[in-house]
């Protein structure tokens, strides 16, 4: 008795009559060997996808899906040749959590530093604050390979080997969108995160968030945009607002900007 193998599949795909007739009969009953081969072997053609499509549509449809903005942002980023994967970055920095404990006081004192609090006026600049109920402040620490965590001041230089950990202070619980902007390019969404009242590191569902600078070069801006829960703007609205500065009708947003300059081998730090 013959069973499916690569050669048989090729013959079937070519429509060889004898093979078609034989396997039409042979497959009329469950055949463990053929099933095992089919389970291990992709195709032929789109058959695997059609099988999955059929099976996955057996269940009752769920409610109309919402757009996963963060996932789409990752895909757009990868399509532009930026293969960095934010969730991998997260995993890479979870181990930093213990090291951060020693930095809490430093960053807290930085958070308490006398930075000017002004209402968002549509013009980008350091220390911009929203006038909504949620107020947000941001500080950044960098971790390079083989070195301790160091606090970054706005406008500081960082290395492409650094991973940035964000620490925020929120006056109440809410949510935040984190964007990254290279030079004058459009801000790219890195993720959406819950905010807790008080001072905390930015965390996502997988743990502590770290922003890898791998592959970056030149001026880079991080935007952390906070908003009260239940008043969620779309990332496109926020991106548009960040780009054009039209936030007059978005007073519930609290916007924190952090500029830095990334150096790499092609773009070394000036000595």
């Amino acid at each position: 008795m013959r069973h499916l193998d690569a050669e048989a599949l090729r013959a079937l795909s070519a429509g060889e009559r004898e093979e078609v007739a034989y396997f039409r009969e042979h497959l009329a009953r469950p055949c463990e060997e053929c099933m095992d081969f089919l389970a291990r072997t992709p195709g032929p053609g789109l058959l695997d996808g059609q099988v999955d499509e059929l099976l996955l549509h057996l269940a009752p449809p769920r409610e109309e899906p919402r757009l996963d903005e963060v996932g789409l942002a990752r895909i757009r980023r990868a399509l532009r040749g930026r293969a960095a994967s934010p969730w991998r970055k997260v995993a890479a920095t979870v181990a930093l959590a213990a090291g951060l404990a020693g930095l809490v006081l430093l960053t807290q004192s930085q958070l308490r530093s006398p930075r000017q609090e002004v209402a968002w006026d549509g013009v980008k600049g350091d220390g911009l604050k929203g006038v909504g109920r949620l107020s947000l402040e941001l500080s950044v620490v960098a971790h390079g390979p083989g070195e301790a965590l160091r606090r970054l001041d706005p406008g500081a230089a960082a290395s492409e080997a650094d991973v940035l950990v964000l620490r925020y202070h929120a006056t109440e619980a809410g949510e935040a969108l984190l964007f990254q902007q290279r030079g004058n390019a459009s801000p790219e969404l890195l993720g959406r995160f819950p905010l807790q009242a008080g001072t905390h590191e930015l965390e996502g569902p997988q743990g502590l968030v770290g922003v890898s600078l791998e592959g970056e070069s030149g001026p880079l801006t991080l935007w952390l945009v906070g908003f009260p829960s239940g008043q969620v703007p779309t990332p496109d609205e926020v991106r548009e607002a960040l780009t054009r500065g039209h936030l007059e009708e978005r007073e519930q947003l609290s916007i924190e900007r952090f500029d830095l300059r990334v150096h790499n081998r092609q773009n070394p730090r000036p000595r």
């Binding site: 497959l27 055949c31 053929c34 099933m35 059929l54 099976l55």
Partner: peptide, 11 residues
């Protein structure tokens, strides 16, 4: 189970 369905669809 999926392999069983794949076999059936191929047939």
């Amino acid at each position: 189970f999926r392999a069983r369905i794949k076999q059936e669809l191929l047939r």
